[in-house]
């Protein structure tokens, strides 16, 4: 009696596996091929752990940092930096973008300032970040904030400027008259796709700033910091592990964000209904 359903599940899993391989065969094949070539190349041709650690070297280093727990410390510290930067960019950038997008005078007053400050690479702010905030998490968060806030402002302004006039007029005729209400009930939801795209860009930029900020010694922990630290110790296998983790984590954050935004917030948009 008990064996039957179990067998059933096993059978299903096999079918799922076969199905998955059939569907994504080429993708799986290409990744596997690269791993095999990498391993052989590192072991047989380069044969120097400093120049090119092999796949298995990297795998062992990965298990090591999981085992001794450093990965989780670094991960949480980096996510703290990232969260501080992105959240402050969202909470400061969106209101600025809203004010600029809705009120012409605000736009005229602030646009030149933003255009002057925006082209400064976020990393150029690192000295000031350290002078102002010291070697703290806030300091790292600040550098990420600088990188993330402008895409959010610009996309919010763009979103607000492209709100179809007919939505605003329809709302007015329906009794929604005050600026505050029009922003909240019409302009904001209408520009949500643009704002979400801005946040996505901001997260990409912020992620790069995170690594650089940590590498330049704004913090004494975190994924970016560890890359630099292991480099000093000539442990290139660890460097590569942290590089890959940064890549995968960036991908994961983007996927989660898109899943949430496209699937929940923007399911009213044609073509993206999950």
């Amino acid at each position: 009696m008990e064996g039957l359903p179990l067998h059933g599940i096993g059978g299903n899993m096999n079918i799922n596996l076969v199905e998955a391989i059939r569907k994504n065969g080429l993708e799986i094949l290409s990744i596997s091929a690269v791993i095999v070539i990498w391993q052989l190349f590192a072991d047989l041709v380069v044969n120097n752990k400093l120049l090119l650690p092999s796949f298995t070297d990297v795998l062992f280093s990965f298990f090591k940092i999981i085992q001794n727990g450093t990965l989780f410390t670094d991960l949480s510290i980096s996510l703290l930096h990232f969260g501080l930067g992105i959240l402050s960019a969202v909470f400061i950038g969106i209101p600025i973008g809203v004010a600029m997008g809705w009120f012409k005078s605000v736009n005229r007053a602030t646009d030149p300032l933003i255009e002057i400050v925006r082209p400064i690479p976020p990393l150029a702010w690192i000295p000031f970040a350290i002078v102002w905030f010291g070697l703290t998490h806030v300091s790292a968060g600040f550098v990420i904030f600088i990188g993330a806030v402008f895409p959010i402002i610009i996309n919010t302004v763009e979103g607000f400027k492209s709100v179809p006039r007919v939505y605003v007029e329809a709302a007015k005729v329906l009794g929604c008259m005050k600026d505050r209400e029009l922003i909240r009930y019409v302009a904001l939801p209408s520009s949500l796709p643009s704002i979400a795209a801005g946040i996505r860009i901001a997260m990409g930029v912020g992620w790069m700033c995170l690594v650089a900020a940590e590498m330049f010694g704004v913090s004494t922990n975190g994924l970016g910091y560890k890359i630099w630290w292991h480099y000093y110790l000539h442990q290139m296998d660890f460097v590569l592990v942290y590089m890959l983790i940064l890549g995968f984590l960036g991908l994961l954050i983007d996927k989660i964000f898109r899943w949430y935004v496209d699937g929940k917030l923007l399911k009213w948009r044609e073509g993206v209904v999950v």
């Binding site: 007919v166 939505y167 007029e169 329809a170 329906l174 009794g175 008259m177 939801p189 209408s190 948009r269």
Partner: peptide
């Protein structure tokens, strides 16, 4: 504008982020 004078536009003016029901409840 005033809710005592309703208007129907030529272009599609429904709020795309609201369901049919919530479009009607807007006013």
């Amino acid at each position: 504008p005033d809710p005592r004078r309703g208007m129907v536009f030529q272009e599609y003016s429904l709020f795309p982020w609201r369901t049919v029901m919530h479009n009607i409840t807007f006013g």
